[in-house]
Design a protein around this nucleic acid. Structure first.
Lengths: 247, 247
DNA sequence: CTCCGGATTTGATCTGTGTCAAGGAAAGCT
DNA sequence: AGCTTTCCTTGACACAGATCAAATCCGGAG
């Protein structure tokens, strides 16, 4: 998952999507092309980046902050269907209108690419298409993992799963070794967590308290979380503890 | 969604994956390449096509029948994460081992492609990569739609959603107009439906009976379902009734 | 420093779905 | 035809999580 995409690749070291996104193998001329069609936008916490049904003028890559993808039913029931951390990609090439509402959960900076030229670039640059395919397949796997969480896990397991997933992403980004304790600021309200997990905010609050009481997590204030033992958390989440060893 | 991929494209009219899959724009030499690396396999209902963790020797396309993708927790809780109907694609290029267990829900015929040469073909044939990207994005949307079902809908709405999704696929395949009543054989056991919906088989049974009593569906035997009014069913599913009209 | 409003916690109660249990119906086999 | 097996239905009851309600916490504005 953490590939050998040396972030220090010279040609595109300033490109915000270098980690996982389209310009993994940037060459100079492609970078120039990217530079031509890209621009940055900032959003403050709580702001809506794009409404479901809006005409989509750009696709983008998250540079910093956390954004969410949500779907809403007529009567207001909401389900988060994606959590976008730095380096994640937003938007679907070839599609005119947005399918989901994109919201900034914290202050967010995005690197936007005008959609039309971006589509053109995909069509003409095979390795970008491949990279995008790879990323989409990763997202599909994540969505499917989430289906198990939503369909079959208890409230406590759901919370543990969410914290474990975010914890691992953070640990990856900051090169933590497994075994070390991990501390991070959770940039989601209890309500956002509930929307992600298919729970109510009250249940989220109760289960977070329970995990804290049982020493699975340590809370400093409301949002700053320390995971003393990742293995323990993953057991609580109901994940295989044997880190992927298969017979 | 139903694209203008004339199924009668001469060059690949006998290719089982012509509808949505990689050879949408087959040219003669590519077809030859496909012919070289593909073969057919049949599976009988209930048979496991591939276990999670198995080495993946092929990717494939469903020719006929219904297959399922499932994930299982250590204690046996199961969640279906994909329902594969004819023309759907199975397997992830570039990945050595299968992530999910693939099971034949009914008798199934698959068109298999040896993985290595298939990967090679993707690398060398841009439009195949694009087609695969398109298909993967469709699957991602389907998975996200399913997250809303799993996270926020009631048991009754879940059943209605499943029937509506299958009904629409069937209607598409057989060129039914909307407004007509649709009849089809549901090729899933109550248990498989439960695994898909994050319910127990008893709850599925009860809610199917309830929908039948209320005239939303008509049952002939256990499996043969008629949907007299698709609009009504979609209301029951909690979907927007205005077929996607956005201001 | 104090006040205010959103975020969070906690409590009491209700309810939809799970669990356990017992039959029933259809399909295949001898 | 009778038996077995698998799938499905229905009932009674339990419980996890939702709902309703009320404090409490905390950061920012004044």
């Amino acid at each position: 998952m953490t590939q050998s995409l040396a972030p220090e690749t010279k040609d595109c070291s300033d490109c915000p999507i270098r980690h996982r996104a389209v310009c993994a193998k940037c060459e100079t001329d492609e970078l120039a092309l990217l530079e031509d069609i890209k621009y940055y936008r900032s959003f403050s916490a709580g702001q809506t980046v794009m409404w479901a049904g809006d005409r989509m003028e750009f696709v983008a890559s998250v540079v910093s902050g956390v954004a969410t993808l949500t779907q809403t039913m007529e009567d207001g029931r909401r389900q988060m269907v994606g959590l976008l951390l730095p380096s994640d990609f937003v938007g679907r090439p070839q599609r005119e209108t947005a399918t989901y509402t994109v919201t900034a959960a914290s202050d967010v900076v995005m690197c936007c690419f005008r959609r039309k030229p971006f589509e053109h670039m995909i069509a003409n640059t095979p390795h970008i298409a491949h990279r995008l395919l790879e990323m989409t397949l990763d997202e599909l796997d994540a969505a499917r993992e989430w289906m198990l969480v939503l369909g079959r896990k208890t409230a406590r397991e759901k919370i543990a799963s969410l914290l474990s997933i975010i914890g691992r992403r953070i640990a990856d980004l900051s090169d933590k070794k497994s075994g070390q304790s991990i501390t991070f600021d959770l940039m989601l309200t209890r309500e956002a967590m509930a929307d992600y997990l298919g729970l109510t905010l009250e249940t989220v609050s109760r289960q977070v308290s329970a995990l804290k009481k049982d020493g699975v997590i340590v809370l400093e204030g409301k949002r700053n979380i320390t995971i003393p033992d990742m293995r323990r958390l993953m057991e609580e989440a109901g994940d295989d503890s044997d880190g992927g060893l298969l017979f």
